[in-house]
Nucleic acid binder design. Structure first.
Lengths: 235, 235
DNA sequence: GTCTATAGTGCGATAGAC
DNA sequence: GTCTATCGCACTATAGAC
C-alpha cells in the first residue's frame, strides 16, 4: 500500500471531523442549519490548528481566530462556549477518529510481520492526512488540564499496545526474536519513529524524503531488530 | 560509562548556566553582587522551566513566576528586561552549554563504533542532567520568533551531523554497512530515539526503565542496523 | 536590591441590534 | 446567524518609596 492508495481508501478530512461534532452536539451548538455549521466549524478548526501550531494555543487570541476565520468575535461563540471547549472539541474528536481508523485498518489476525508493516504504514499515513491535528495534539498535550492529559496518555499507550501485541504474537510464533522486556521497548521505539515523522516533517520534506520512503526505512529498521535473519539496510 | 560516572565527570547544573550568564551580561544585568545575582537567577530559571513545562511559557505569567520564586514583580525586572529576554537567555545559554559538552565528550577520532556508543550515551546523559531545559527548548521551539527558530533548527542539524559523520566514517572503513541515503536517515533515527527519552521520561520512569537500560537498548538497536553481523537483541 | 502601587494594554466573554 | 460595542479582569511593565 502507498500513501496515494491509502488516501483513496480512507476518505477523511477535517470537514468530516466537524460533521461528526455537529451531529453529536446538535443540542449544545446554537446553529440549526447543519451545512452552515459544518462549513464554519471546519474553517474554525483549520484556523485554530494553523494558529495553534504556529504560536501555541494559549497565545492564540480569539481576536486572532476571528480575523483568520472572517467571523466576528460574537459569531465564534455560537460554535463553542469558550476557548476551553474549543480545545476539548478538537482533541476529543480527533482522538475518536484516529482510534477508529487505526482499529479498522490494522487487521486483527494474519501474519504478524504483515500486521506490523500495515500498522506502521497506517499510522504514518493517518498522521500525514491529519498532520495539523497530530502535531497540535502532541504539542499542546502538556498544557492541558489533568483530566485531558490522562486521555492523551491513554491514547499514547493504546497505540503502543497495538504494536506490542503484534510483537508479542510474532515472538510466540517464533517469527520474531525478542525478549519480553524488549517487546515493550521495541513498541515504544516504533512509536517514537512514527511520531518523528509528523514532528519533524519540515526536515524530511526539505530532504526530499517522501512518506513512502520513510515508511520503508522504518519498516526495514524494525524488521532488522525483530527478525532473526536480516533483510539488510545496505544498498 | 554509566550515568553515575558521567555525573561525576561532568559537573553541571542550572546554577553553572546562570553564572555564565551573569559573567557574560555584567553590563545589562542590574545586580552588582554576583553571588546574589547567580542565586536569584538560578531560582528564576528553575521556576521558569518548571512553570513553562507544566503550563507553557506563554501561559506562565510573571505573577506566577513572582509567586514561585518568592521575588516581587518589580524585583524580577532587575534580572531581565522582559519576558522575551528571559526566554532568550534560557535558550541561548542552554544551547551553548549543550554544544560545548557534546563536542568535549565525543572524541573526534577513534573507532567509529566506540564513538557512536559514546555519542549516544553522552547525549542521553546530558539530556537527563538538564532534563527540564531539554524538554522546555523542544516544546517551546515552535512558538519562538523566526530568528530563534533558525537557531534551534541549526542545533538540531548540528547534533544530527555529529552522528552522520560517525556513520559515514564507519561506512568508509567498512565497519558499518549503510547506503549513502541511509546514513542520514539513520542519524535522524538516532536523534528521534534520543529525544524520546526526554520527551517521554514519565513513561520510562513508570516502567522502571533506567537511563542506562535505555542507552543499552538504543545502542544495540542502532548497532543491529548499521553492522553487517548482528549482536542480537534476543535474550 | 527589593518592595508596593499603578499605568496602560489586550484579553475572554456577553448584550443587544439587525 | 452574525454583527458591533463594551464590561470586567489579568496581564506586562514601570515608578518611586525604602
Amino acid at each position: 500500500m502507498t500513501y496515494e492508495e491509502f488516501g483513496r481508501a480512507v476518505q477523511l478530512s477535517i470537514e468530516d471531523i466537524c460533521r461528526g461534532i455537529c451531529r453529536g452536539k446538535r443540542d449544545s451548538i446554537k446553529i440549526k442549519n447543519e451545512d452552515v455549521a459544518v462549513r464554519n466549524l471546519t474553517v474554525i478548526f483549520n484556523a485554530t490548528l494553523e494558529l495553534g501550531n504556529r504560536k501555541g494555543f494559549q497565545a492564540m487570541s480569539l481576536r486572532d481566530l476571528s480575523e483568520s476565520t472572517g467571523l466576528s468575535l460574537g459569531a465564534l461563540y455560537a460554535y463553542f462556549s469558550g476557548k476551553e471547549e474549543l480545545l476539548d472539541l478538537i482533541l476529543t474528536q480527533g482522538w475518536l477518529i484516529t482510534n477508529r481508523i487505526l482499529t479498522e485498518q490494522i487487521p486483527s489476525d494474519g501474519e504478524p510481520l504483515e500486521r506490523l508493516r500495515t500498522g506502521i504504514r497506517t499510522h504514518l499515513y493517518l498522521s500525514e492526512m491529519l498532520h495539523p491535528w497530530f502535531f497540535f495534539s502532541y504539542m499542546e498535550a502538556k498544557n492541558l488540564p489533568r483530566e485531558e492529559i490522562r486521555k492523551i496518555i491513554k491514547a499514547e499507550l493504546f497505540t503502543e499496545k497495538i504494536f506490542s501485541d503484534i510483537l508479542e504474537e510474532g515472538t510466540k510464533l517464533n517469527m520474531f526474536r525478542l525478549g519480553k522486556s524488549n517487546i515493550q521497548m521495541t513498541a515504544s521505539m516504533i512509536k517514537a519513529l512514527l511520531q518523528d515523522w509528523y514532528l519533524k516533517r519540515w526536515k524530511y520534506t526539505q530532504r526530499g524524503v517522501s512518506i513512502d520512503d520513510y515508511a520503508l526505512f522504518v519498516t526495514r529498521a524494525i524488521e532488522v531488530i525483530v527478525m532473526p535473519v536480516e533483510p539488510s539496510l545496505s544498498e
